[in-house]
Design a binder for these strands. Structure first.
Lengths: 348, 348
DNA sequence: CTGAAAGCGCTTACAG
DNA sequence: CTGAAAGCGCTTACAG
């Protein structure tokens, strides 16, 4: 059975396609009587509007494309959720692609979404080189906004936060707690800009406090719990192991925590542990995890706002939202046993 | 600047639109020379294929619609991931909608996706009444498959598991451990079919072992950690509190665990705790959580397979995949203190 | 191997 | 308030 089209409805109602189209989109332009008749017929024939044809004719789309590293990390789910909620308010749906932190995949997805003629694109975090691609997309009139970062340019819109500062503040907090040997379990910062910024934040905090950087204290790995666990085991087996560990993702922190417990150590008595993201489970860990709260949901919402500003202004109105992160102090960090009371060495 | 179309390319290459179209989709049909020329021109003009127009002309789509309860629960992320991975193999992208366990929203999304002319629809879990809607969609020639359930009909395709059996087996396990008072923290089983099936599984296990059902032991709540925590506190404050609690979602179990620890109790010494789903963190909890493993990822993959069977057969070939769940025994369950050695009462 | 033509299902400026 | 017509960017059977 062929699908019912606007043409069929028009014929049955004795009007033109144009009138049916108006009945659908601008009912107030149609005479009451005609309108009723058309609506009745649409009902009875189970007419389903063809948004694909409509989009083509109108030369616009009501789909936005979204590229995230992976849907499996719950912190991104919050951003996705924020995006979907907001987009829905505008009557838009979301096409989601996972880049898996892979550059090629990211490029492929961008092209794919461009082919689908999405109304706009939101990219959650950039791989190396993505920024240039985003800029070229914007030039090709694909409104695009970046989130989870603060791209250093005034030509692209974004809703992000300062990864450097966020990592700096947590490291600084640990140092003020008198930790001198602070381990770092972090994602692939050689590949991911965002992770690199955090790494630099950690470095800068050490430096500002006159603490020398020890490469042995750094574990670079992927973002899974098992990675966090293995990383922590590695740090714990150092001859001079850290008194505090900053796991730059709550997922990594959870893995790290289980490694610490396996060793029979206590958090924070024997070792302090800090996370990053503040996902749901952080507050439910034992002990509750001190972490950096990322406004993932709000970022998603603002990214959509920035996107629609772009869309509605013909890519003229660049919006740049810089969101704050918060240090969430819970119970997983304390002063190091040996250093209690001792004051740390500084440069200045 | 107007977008470059197939028409522009054709003119520049001195061929017809048809030939350009062939150069894109069936290059082997085009003479080597012509092909090269066309490709060069497409490159130099940054031609981007318009998939929307293509879909309309071809009367097919390469987007599948996916409806899930919420992207915020990580267990669904796995299914989404499985779906996306598999769909991608077929060259399809995924439009995702969250129903938030709400019937109206689910209906709205189905209609929306139908308007977008998706090639097919995957519904992760049904609300009450959805089954009928799915059946009617299939009749309207929207290939649709259900996942996370085993709809009781031979007219719809699905890739699911037996929620009743899964809950039964965990309850049975706890009873064999000699627990007589088993608390249940469960999602809104009055609204969600899936949850109701699990509730019935719990009930059936009790009954088969001759244990009387005590409504005080049941906590119905939403699927968040805080709900799990509050639920556990409620159970713990009962005059005759349970010796084991089955939280029918690992997320609820994690909340429950933190409540138990707050009370200064030990798992499994003082109380046993079991979960459901086996999401990533279950193995990393302290103690590692005994739970029911749901093959979320595989289900997603098979759902896509079933969907493409449907699509390619013109909705003729119904596929019904029944997946197994596994009891994952870790360390959060043991025999109840008081009942050690005592044998439980049975009917038969 | 290639082209002309009809068509996919809708929209919209124009005219009445 | 309504219709005729051109158009959105592609595809595909048909003919050569």
């Amino acid at each position: 059975m062929k699908k019912t089209t606007i043409q069929d409805i028009a014929k049955a109602a004795g009007v033109s396609k144009a009138t049916v189209s108006r009945a659908i989109h601008s009912p107030q332009l149609v005479k009451r009587n005609t309108l009723n008749r058309i609506q009745l017929i649409m009902e009875s024939r189970d007419y389903v509007y063809d948004a694909v044809a409509g989009d083509l004719a109108r030369k616009k789309s009501s789909i936005i494309g979204l590229i995230i590293p992976t849907i499996k990390n719950s912190i991104f789910s919050s951003t996705v959720y924020g995006i979907q909620q907001k987009a829905e308010e505008y009557g838009y749906t979301t096409l989601i692609g996972n880049s898996n932190y892979d550059n090629e995949t990211e490029i492929r997805l961008m092209k794919l979404f461009q082919q689908r003629r999405v109304a706009g694109l939101i990219v959650t975090g950039l791989s190396a080189g993505s920024l240039k691609r985003i800029e070229s997309l914007v030039q090709q009139e694909v409104p695009s906004v970046v989130t989870w970062e603060l791209p250093d340019t005034d030509t692209v819109s974004f809703a992000g936060f300062d990864n450097f500062k966020a990592a700096y503040s947590m490291t600084d907090y640990l140092i003020r707690l008198k930790h001198l040997r602070i381990g770092l379990i972090i994602g692939p910062y050689t590949k991911i800009d965002r992770a690199r910024k955090r790494f630099e934040g950690y470095l800068a905090a050490l430096k500002n406090h006159g603490i020398v950087y020890d490469p042995d204290l750094i574990v670079e790995c992927n973002y899974t719990m098992i990675d966090g666990k293995e990383g922590m085991h590695r740090l714990l087996s150092l001859t001079e192991s850290p008194t505090a560990v900053f796991a730059v993702s709550d997922v990594l922190a959870m893995g790290a925590l289980s490694a610490i417990k396996e060793k029979g150590l206590n958090v924070p008595k024997d070792i302090s542990l800090a996370g990053f993201d503040d996902i749901e489970f952080a507050a439910f860990l034992d002990p509750p995890l001190t972490t950096v709260k990322i406004p993932a949901y709000e970022m998603g919402q603002l990214a959509v706002k920035a996107l629609f500003d772009l869309i509605n202004s013909g890519s003229k109105s660049i919006k740049q939202y810089r969101l704050n992160t918060d240090l969430i102090i819970r119970e997983s960090c304390g002063e190091p046993e040996g250093n209690k009371g001792k004051s740390i060495q500084r440069n200045e």
